[in-house]
Nucleic acid binder design. Structure first.
Lengths: 121, 121
DNA sequence: ATGCATAGTTACCTCCAAGTAAGTAGTTAC
DNA sequence: GTAACTACTTACTTGGAGGTAACTATGCAT
């Protein structure tokens, strides 16, 4: 999907504030994109709550549960209760949620590069 | 620049937490990407402080100054004092700062689309 | 000397994202 | 009956992002 970039100084160039704000409000927190990326690393329906809690260093059960709930409400992940003993719950990205992967990877790559740039001070 | 996406479940797929965290810490706030996008809409060296303050609805002088300072420290924008009366200050994206434009636009586009998805509930 | 412009700064306040720690609930295993 | 597993939930707390409003500095105009 190629997005046409408006020309500089053209009237339509003035950014749509609300759209970017919406994204930042939903995704700008500390954990959501991290969670998305971690789920994306497993085949569908194979990412368990406990596994995420262990893999994502520093996250607490409370935050993970809260963030996953928000992601589910926003149709980015699905939550499936499995018939195992003890009960397990798996999380998977929706097709729509997968549209976040390139964005998250770009940000990740940018952050990786940024370390170098800043160290070169 | 095409970034190779690691295969699912491969060991290197486990996301580099720190890189994404760095990006989110720097750019995840309410204003920085908005400012970047607004500056990108003007030819180099033509974006004044007051202009940004007026264009970016809701931002205060304090926040704008603070965010611009952080962006400057991170080599994303340059600050130039102009010999006008009264003195004006212009901000411009560095070449490096421009690497954020596609990311900001993608997020913006994603937010625009997200509104539709969520309204379709 | 008062007002207006640009480009901030300073002091104070508020709220919430995020952290910590402990508890709940269902089930199995011994 | 108690320990252990998964998947949360609840109560309490705190740092800092962000908001508001007033103030500073400099120069020009009238």
């Amino acid at each position: 999907m190629h997005i046409k970039r408006p020309e500089k100084t053209s009237p339509e160039c003035i950014p749509n504030l609300l759209a970017l704000r919406d994204s930042l409000e939903l995704l700008g927190g500390k954990w959501k994109l991290l969670i998305v990326l971690h789920i994306s690393c497993r085949p569908k329906e194979l990412q368990h709550f406990k596994k995420l809690e262990k893999e994502i260093t520093g996250i607490s059960a409370k935050m993970l549960a809260k963030e996953l709930k928000t992601l589910e409400e926003n149709k980015i992940v699905t939550r499936t209760i499995q018939n195992t003993r003890p009960v397990t719950v798996t999380y998977a990205l929706t097709a729509y949620g997968e549209s976040l992967i390139p964005i998250a990877r770009d940000l990740q790559q940018w952050g990786l590069n940024h370390r170098k740039i800043i160290k070169e001070k």
